Amino acid sequence: MSDQTHERAVNATDETVAAGQSEDQGRREHYGEFYGLHSPEDPDLPLLVVYGNCQAEATRVLLDGAADGRWRTLRMPPVHELVADDLPHLRKVLADTSYLVAQPIVDGYRDLPLGTQEIARELPERASIARFPSVYWAALFPTQVIVRVEAGDPPVVPYHDLRVLVAAANRVPVSFEPVHADGVRAVHEDSLAQLRRRQEHHGTIDAATILEHAGADTTWVVNHPHNHVLLHESQAILERLGLTGEVSDPGRVLLGELRTPVYAETLDALGIDGEASTSWQIRGDEVAEQEVADEQLRWYAEHPEAIETGLKQHAELVRTLGV
């Protein structure tokens, strides 16, 4: 997978832009300050805005917890939910922003001026910017991928398993054999190299080193980091902005609603300690891999283009893993 494809893939599973979304009153209330429905508690404090996908909101929570009355944050829609009607609200927020913390978003994202460089032009002259990368880390679950197709995401979980894709293509039962050790290590090295290249290209904080040394505390799924990673990233963001503050654990898991199985063989191949599992954890419920596969196989039968696209996009990975 190319660097650009990785970057787009991180946001891909979050994209569900419904018609008339900006008129959804429940959504507007949830982001009340962004839409001007509520006033900030202390408008005189400098505003820190975190811009990006689901990782952005988790980061905002941590940076808000470290503020201690020195700045304020604002809950805003993730970039994949923003629509044209939201642009005036976004510009108004940016005009009041002192610190922008942003993930790299390409110019013209979804045919709107939502790119990180584009929104940066709306900032006051003295505003500070810190960029942090979109984490995509497949080391603990090397067969998990993201595939963008017009039909959207598969059922149960918005992720694809190459073993299920190959089984669907060949019309054979799915084999959940663990990936061989060399394949696991190859995916680990690729995840690390891809992330380092994206960091260097966009001038972000160094999340790759955090992930490299996090052991099993890296990601729950390919694009949802553990608290451990988010905490260290957030501390690095404060340092990049020149702000003093201590980021602390919020006492809850921020991005752990979906948790991919992590095989003991995978942990062994990477030489790390961790809790092994062979079932998904979906919003607190244990769901067997076969159950997820059965639902997705039915979906693939209705959307064969997803099989073709997925295997074409990840052909090199299929060969590397030998699935």
Rank of each mutant, 00 (worst) to 15 (best):
L162T: 02
I210P: 00
V184F: 01
G203E: 05
L37H: 11
R163Q: 03
D268P: 07
E302D: 15
H188A: 15
Y300P: 02
I205N: 01
I210H: 01
L162D: 01
R163E: 03
Y109I: 08
L321E: 04
L297M: 06
R28M: 11
Q117F: 13
C54G: 03
T73F: 04
G256R: 11
E81Q: 12
Q290S: 13
R319I: 08
G251I: 13
P124Q: 12
W137H: 00
D42Q: 14
L258G: 11
A186Y: 01
A9K: 12
H314K: 05
I237V: 13
R163L: 01
R298P: 00
W299S: 06
L243I: 07
D153A: 14
R91T: 14
V145Y: 04
A288I: 03
D24K: 14
P40N: 10
S191V: 09
V17D: 12
A102P: 00
L211T: 00
A214R: 05
L162P: 01
N53H: 13
Q103P: 03
L243S: 09
G65R: 06
V135C: 06
G203Q: 08
R131N: 08
A139D: 06
H202L: 04
T143Q: 08
K92Q: 13
Y51E: 02
D85N: 15
N53R: 09
D3I: 08
G274D: 01
D44I: 08
Y136G: 14
R196G: 07
G152T: 02
E233F: 08
W280R: 01
Q117M: 13
G203H: 07
A102N: 03
S39F: 07
R121A: 14
R91V: 15
L37S: 08
V93T: 07
Y300K: 00
Y136V: 12
G20P: 10
D111Y: 11
A66L: 04
V147S: 07
A138V: 08
L74E: 04
V187A: 00
L62C: 01
P88H: 05
M1S: 10
V17M: 12
E246T: 12
R75F: 11
A84S: 14
E239Q: 14
T204I: 00
V149W: 01
P78A: 10
E81W: 13
R196A: 10
H314R: 05
D86N: 08
R259P: 04
H213V: 10
A169L: 02
P304L: 05
M76D: 00
R283S: 09
P40M: 10
V184Y: 00
P173L: 09
T219F: 02
P78T: 12
H201S: 14
E150S: 14
A193C: 07
G274H: 02
R126Q: 15
V262E: 02
P43A: 06
D273N: 13
S98Q: 15
D190P: 05
E289Q: 14
R110A: 08
H201G: 10
A130K: 08
Q144T: 14
E200L: 15
Y31I: 11
E289Y: 09
A236I: 06
D285A: 12
S277K: 05
L140A: 09
L47M: 11
L211F: 03
L258W: 13
